[in-house]
Amino acid sequence: MNTTILTEQYLKERLSKGIRDDGRNLLSFRKISLETGKIPHAEGSAEIRLGNTKILVGIKMDVGEPMKDKPDEGSIMTGAELLPMAHHSYDAGPPSPDAVELARVVDRGIRAGNIIDVKKLFIEEGKSWNVFIDLYVLNYDGNLFDSSALAAVAALYNSRMPKYEEGKVIREGNLERLPINNISTSCTYAKIGNSILLDTNASEEVFADARMTIANDEHFVRAMQKGLGGSFLPNEIDMFVDNTFEKSKELRGIIQKTRGD
């Protein structure tokens, strides 16, 4: 029997008694620390630490063309880089399906939550601001979905809006805030054996059978994504949604605090 099987059995046995190796409850987050404005060259930035997961999110804005189907709005593009330095299993190269999924799920939470007031990003006929959200995973220790979502929204919440004057982009001086409508956050649950966990760390996540991410604001669920080869029963989804509405109050508070309001 190899050691991975032993580790898995040990973990599942402990989880079935409600015990996690770092002493948390099954449905609680690790300590979250969030620091904004680390990259003054960017329009906005935030670095999050969640356990040993460390992600830096940078916001850049450029003048570009609006999307064809939304000619009077700015556009949003979200990318994720699982840097090879972040984990021994990550390789350099084009984004893996995991990276694409991460970026798209975070993007949906922001887009569906109307976080950015995209109407205010319109400049003139054929011109609008394009907002680039880049998720830079620097160290992997599980739960990239929630940590990326928190850092991305915090970075947007603290972004400055460049000016466009006489064909030139001005990124310095007295700038207004990027217009923000709303705050969304997410909670990701994992099923390991018969146990349900919130915010898995790397040594838990490796044994997860199924994963469910739920992004919400104060009133609505905004995005959901089930992942991995396992499955959930309908009543488990109900539980996740209810728990997420409860947990998200705290998470929204963390983002609000970065701006001191």
């Binding site: 949906r108 887009r111 569906a112 469910m212 669920v221 905004r222 995005a223 959901m224 994504q225 089930k226 499955s231 959930f232 029963l233 309908p234 989804i237």
Partner: peptide
């Protein structure tokens, strides 16, 4: 069992 669930 729910095998896939996405939402926005």
């Amino acid at each position: 069992e729910i095998n896939l669930l996405q939402m926005d």
